[in-house]
Design a binder for these strands. Structure first.
Lengths: 147, 147
DNA sequence: CCTCAAATAGGAATCATTTTCATTTAACAC
DNA sequence: GTGTTAAATGAAAATGATTCCTATTTGAGG
């Protein structure tokens, strides 16, 4: 997708504008976040970068993700079991569909959420700032290979 | 609410039916889960029970919550930051509204989720088994006392 | 090329949760 | 009531993802 180059440039520009150095390790992380179709985990990112930077530290991956989160350019999908997945293409809240077998994460198209947000705000008196919607299930390929 | 006694009885019966012992510590945990209006954390539960059982171990709280989860009688709301909250009154998936200041958790009334579930299933080919919907914001009392 | 604040690597620290294991106890039979 | 036994408990150690620490390295501007 051509959008991925745009995402890469957008994130790099924003990092520069905020006065952050563009280290090779940092750019490699941005590249993975921007280009990945899937929703990589920290370990995924770490393993991919280790190919080119064998001395890369896990701490560097964590620090950079934190930084990129702080400038609003990556969406963190943290799960209670400790697994974290990242979306550098759509860094704003949106629904996800997660296969509990193969851990694949898909972005469905849904737009009725905005109405729901207003409904909730009106009913509870909260000022809603954010949300998170995940559906869990079995994807079609995992459903096909049942034992 | 009268429902709380029913919840307590339901959970205790289910524990017995599954062949689990009814220890005083276990029953105390069930009572808190069944009676709490809020959504207590493990620490909340631990602190409450310590009043009556000073030797109570945190591990026992964790073990029993795990057990009660396994028989489907408590809903665990785990958060990526490691905080966990429990709902023993409605142990099935339902939306939550969470105040990011005081950490209060409220159950809004929403019913358009079922449609969404079917829409997602049709679009992605997933067999949807479960979901999680959280809205994050500022509750009315926290919004009123702003600095 | 110099300078220096920022970034990195690697290992130690953290902290919620789980596991281990010796001791206690609920449940059941008699 | 007493005995038996598997399950449950308490306390401490283990776990594991993430963060912190510190000495060393490096990007970027002059």
């Amino acid at each position: 997708m051509a959008d991925h180059n745009n995402r890469y440039e957008t994130i790099v520009r924003k990092l520069r504008d905020h006065g952050h150095k563009l280290t090779p390790q940092r750019l490699a992380i941005v590249k993975i976040l921007a280009k990945s179709e899937g929703h990589p985990s920290v370990e995924n990112i770490y393993d991919q970068i280790k190919i080119d930077f064998p001395t890369m530290s896990l701490a560097t991956v964590y620090r950079n993700i934190l930084l990129i989160k702080s400038i609003g350019e990556v969406l963190e999908l943290g799960f209670p079991d400790g697994s974290n997945r990242y979306d550098g293409n759509r860094p704003y809240p949106h629904p996800h569909v997660i296969c509990i077998k193969c851990k694949k994460i898909v972005d469905p198209e849904l737009d009725s959420l905005d109405d729901m947000r207003e409904e909730v705000a009106a009913e509870t008196g909260f000022k809603i700032l954010n949300h998170r919607l995940d559906f869990f299930g079995i994807c079609s390929s995992c459903g096909a290979n049942k034992g």
